[in-house]
Amino acid sequence: MAEVLVYVDHVDGAVRKPTLELLTLARRIGEPVAVALGGGAADTAATLAEHGATRVLTHDASEYGEYLVVPKVDALQAAVTAVSPAAVLVPSSAEGKEIAARLALRIGSGVITDAVDLEAGETGPVATQSVFAASFTTTSRVSKGTPVITVKPNSAAVEAAPAAGAVEALNVTFSEKARGTKVTGRTVREATGRPELTEAAIVVSGGRGVNGAENFAIIEALADSLGAAVGASRAAVDAGWYPHTNQVGQTGKSVSPQLYIANGISGAIQHRAGMQTSKTIVAVNKDAEAPIFDLVDYGVVGDLFEVVPQLTEEINTRKG
């Protein structure tokens, strides 16, 4: 059976959830072979094996942390040469897309980004994408070389599928371009204790109607009652009420959770582009004409400062 390379996104050996989703998709096409790079790479093996990785190729070098993107491209290219895979799957983060594109160009292959589903096809994997602010769904395939495909978070379920997960050292020789862009400083974002926005099962977002940074406490309280991530519309971020890293929409994150709760968000195209594929959508907005209500499964026309705290209290009561 053909092997499929899966690029592992991990933090010091802790595998992030989108990588486990990639293993589910990789098993539809062939036998997953994981590639883990940098500090803690070998520590990823146990988790990857539980989810279907037959082999885990690892390599650690200081270059992965000290220089941008290119060392990782060099390593993934070495893995492609060593394995001759049927496809290469990479998580659709900003960095993941850059790594995938450069790899594809180097190995003379086509690249597809932001797939939301992947199936085996007669002439290679078929990727589903959601385009034009999620108003269209397309299916595409790579027609030249080894398909390189990046997949968005929440595109597949994480499944247990125990496999050998044998750790093997990957041989990597860095190219002369690997040290081109130096990372001279890194500030790790403070953990909020909430799930990662793109990976969360539930996202609670606030927009213009939240009307001030201090009022986001109401949104956070609702999020915490549900174990949800917090999102914000562009209007709220541009006003400085919430960090850009939490922005949902065309120029922020694109999310596809089981439940999306939009509070005080009108639902402009920029925002819809980032949340329209959510399974269940709920909105609270005082404007009955807001376009967000065209998308909802359940909507409340009302003042979010009344509705949201009542909702939070009710959830906490039911839980308690």
Partner: peptide, 28 residues
């Protein structure tokens, strides 16, 4: 091109949801 788009379809419109006006019990 090294990639081929095989099909494109408009996403079906979401079916109309339930919309209520808050009369004091909206959160509940």
């Amino acid at each position: 091109a090294w990639t081929t788009v095989e099909a494109a379809a408009q996403r079906p419109a979401r079916s109309a949801g339930t919309i209520v006006k808050d009369e004091g019990e909206g959160g509940k």
